[in-house]
Design a protein around this nucleic acid. Sequence first.
DNA 1: TAGCATTATATAGCTAAGTATATAAAGGAG
DNA 2: CTCCTTTATATACTTAGCTATATAATGCTA
Lengths: 259, 259
Amino acid sequence: MEFSSNLTLEIFNQPFILEKRIELLKAIEKEGSINKAAKSVPMSYKAAWEAVDMMNNLSPRPIVIKATGGKNGGGTELTDYGRDLINSYTLLKREQEKFLNSMSRLVDGGEFNINAIRRLSMQISARNQISGVVEHIDHGKVNAQLYIKLKSGYTIISVVTDNAVESMAIKVGDEVVAIFKSSSVILSTDNAVGVSSRNKIKGIISNISTGEINTEVTVDIGGDRITSIITKNAAEELGLKTGDEVTALIKSSDVMVGK
Amino acid sequence: MEFSSNLTLEIFNQPFILEKRIELLKAIEKEGSINKAAKSVPMSYKAAWEAVDMMNNLSPRPIVIKATGGKNGGGTELTDYGRDLINSYTLLKREQEKFLNSMSRLVDGGEFNINAIRRLSMQISARNQISGVVEHIDHGKVNAQLYIKLKSGYTIISVVTDNAVESMAIKVGDEVVAIFKSSSVILSTDNAVGVSSRNKIKGIISNISTGEINTEVTVDIGGDRITSIITKNAAEELGLKTGDEVTALIKSSDVMVGK
DNA sequence: TAGCATTATATAGCTAAGTATATAAAGGAG
DNA sequence: CTCCTTTATATACTTAGCTATATAATGCTA
């Protein structure tokens, strides 16, 4: 069984953006006129014009600028906002397709139960959720070590059961999310060479928020941010302040993987 | 902005189940005939008959049984499979709506970025994902303690940052998922009264899978199951075997929350 | 000014999908 | 066997949304 769905974006309960209209907008960007765009999609000029007009009216900001008359008789161009809209829609559409695929898989696999489905759209309390690409998998007897390359260049190692790797079908090259609680992150002001934790990530403190007991430290590691919660005392002993270079230490077994 | 979507289930690339048809099936169950059902939806008999016929043809198993002639002229009834289908669809539809709502929220909140959206549909490697209801929240200075009542009767305590509680809008009565890694679960054969961990859950060992280094122990706690990974040595020392009563110990700070 | 390719607008016609309606076939109940 | 209410099937009509097409209006260019 396959699920499908036609993701439409509504404004004032009016269909605003849908698959076909995105195609039209793309064609307009390419062709420079509603006329040619309509032919290339293909659809009638009337339908195309009405679609464009409606979108422009519903949208808080214009999506296209239309010129009637003039050089080459005028033409129609996308605004920056319009281009943003296309990109956003494409992104959301892809994400929704992933969601529907997961649903199909659950139903087909006979694993159908409300709990399995609930997990499909879930927010997680863990503060640190950094996406990266699996660059290597070390299969052990029971556990597997995933090497996740972040866009900041660092590699985070996650230890999960072989079982999990299999059931989530994680392969090298997959984009995954490294998940760990902020309380699992220990900070060090030296290079922490003598510490056993596998993940040692250097960064600059971008924010310190001191509470009565605990202190929340945000470390910028170049593109991504890691949040650590340590006791107020520890923060004071280390003399942490914004701009300092610190090393974030995370036990690889504290890192979970999301896909 | 609002996203909407018309979730259709397809078989052989043919629309199979959609909103309207579910309404029809429900009406058939209630009325006992296509005729009356069509009137109550409302739609024409022809449309109703064709819809039912198509569904029955596409489905791997019949959805309704139709009798022509006989007592009261015959009638149409749902099969158990048909009823399952309605329930499943309703469930999936609700889940999809939740997903779309999350998308709307992300776009409206201006938090729009691919990472935020990726997280919407994510599987997590953590083995233990048990759903329950929040029965109490203890707000501390930095951390909050969530008391999650499982359907097995046990209450799991999770410590997360106040921040997370707020950003996920977790309230008493919400259905949430307690998430923890199997390696965070320690097992004890006595009642572990002298142990500091907040979560002590008694259960019966339903499965033991021994590897070369680690042993995976599944504990049935009455309705839910907890998976623990401990070293092979530890398992042998405790003399664990299927059917034994054990206590699963989980540090409350190792428990994350999903919603 | 005449030419142009476009936007803007109107109108006629087509098509798919539905409604409304009529009619045959079915088969148990009385 | 006749009655009853349904399924099963066919036909004419309606409607929404589209296409196809024609025509004005526009404003730069040569």
